[in-house]
Design a protein around this nucleic acid. Sequence first.
RNA 1: GGCCCAUUCGUCUAGUGGCCUAGGACACCGCCCUCUCACGGCGGCGGCACGGGUUCGAAUCCCGUAUGGGCCUCCA
Length: 464
Amino acid sequence: MRVRFAPSPTGQLHVGNARTALFNWLLARRHDGTFLLRIEDTDAERSTRESERGILDDLRWLGLDWDEGPDVDGLHGPYRQSERLHLYASYANELLAADHAYHCFCSITRLEAERQADLAAGRPPMYKGTCRALSRSESHARTEAGERSVVRFRVPEREEVKFLDLVRGQVTFNTDVIGDPVIVRSDGRPQYNFAVVVDDALMEITHVIRGEDHISNTPRQILIYRALGFTPPEFAHLALVMGPDHTPLSKRHGATSVAEFRARGFLPEALTNYLALIGWSPGHGEELLEIGELARRFAIEDVGHSSGVFDPEKLAWMNRHYMKVAAPARLAAEALTYFVARGFVTRRTDAAVDFVVSLLPMAVGSVDRLEEIPERVRFLFEFDSGSALARADVAEVVSEPGARAVIAALAEELRAAGRLDRETFRAAAARVKQRTGQKGRALFHPIRVALTGEAGGPELDLAV
RNA sequence: GGCCCAUUCGUCUAGUGGCCUAGGACACCGCCCUCUCACGGCGGCGGCACGGGUUCGAAUCCCGUAUGGGCCUCCA
């Protein structure tokens, strides 16, 4: 089994694409197959190396490794489409020679006008086949005369193209609704539907798992496979990930890229676990599965048919869970970044990591993300009685009957003790209780406010 | 507009003709725990889109309707 993830490097890795990558990876690992990464950078205007680096980085962070790819040599390279141009040219010539393809000289303005006319008339917009019947000599003559042209694939008329989709079952398209697709643009670059077929065939991909947005492209691609003499792979189309309003998840729904979730302090295992559960379930009500376990259980046939809504709340719940089970040293090293960003820690030293480790019990289980940890223990770094008292919730606690007496007594006891650690604190609190007659909330709430400047926060024992 | 695909609690899902009085999780609400915010424990609210069939029996099979999504680009 050979599967692939083929992003175009035109931006950050979107969680929807990350899920597609994950499903491919899970399938490959489940069957001891090969997972390869191919960069679809034929859109030269929008593709960047920076974006490619970012995507590779995000994939690695998620724990998805690839067996062949732009940075991992394999027998089927190169793995960037921009480095495979000669292959597309050669196969395009083959199609041309076999009359499976032809030159089209229609101008973009003409095509656009036709499209608008179709739309206005309520017809499906589709290429009319204007240049289909051009003779080879006429094509040649017009090209010689300097006319620009694209190469279109000749879609056979009135033919049913069927394929068995691994998640959807039998899917049928009639070629009457498919216009002849451009396979080579006028600047000589290959078009997606063509390049993807050449690559998947040459890279010996056995299973194409991709987003549902490609399902209508599939019959076109199958036709090209056949014309080229290749056997089409198995296909599986994944329903898309949606926002709360049931439109495809996008920027306006908030964070959508893996990089953003990473920057906000989500753990990769939480993200992969959560993403795997959109459209797939191991059954038995189990939900918390680390990536290796997901790989052992995953079956593409069990993937659901309908699109799922991305739920940040559930992701946050999973992240809380994984923060609880993660090794403290790892968590602290990751969280340190946020302490530095907040200005609480100035240097990333081992001592700083150790210090953050010691802080973890006050935060883990109480916050959703690593980024929220510094705020949870803010009182350790920023304490100002003036600004604390200016806050309504703090002022309210202090105004409670007996609160001032408790605080005054505490100050005396602590001063007498000469230091503040857990033992002296417990003893001091016990004496304050005795002296003031306050207990429970009336005793500890004022103490909390006096010690931390906040009305809420971690367990007092831990804070001390 | 045409074609393709989908439709179980607010959300993610279990369910593959009788085990369903539809199970779990997140969220929400309540109680407990508790110095606070959280965590945790217990409980509650809440769903088979609609209409026809098929069948002794349908969330499960068929048809239609509605709704949602995808594609119809010299973008991938």
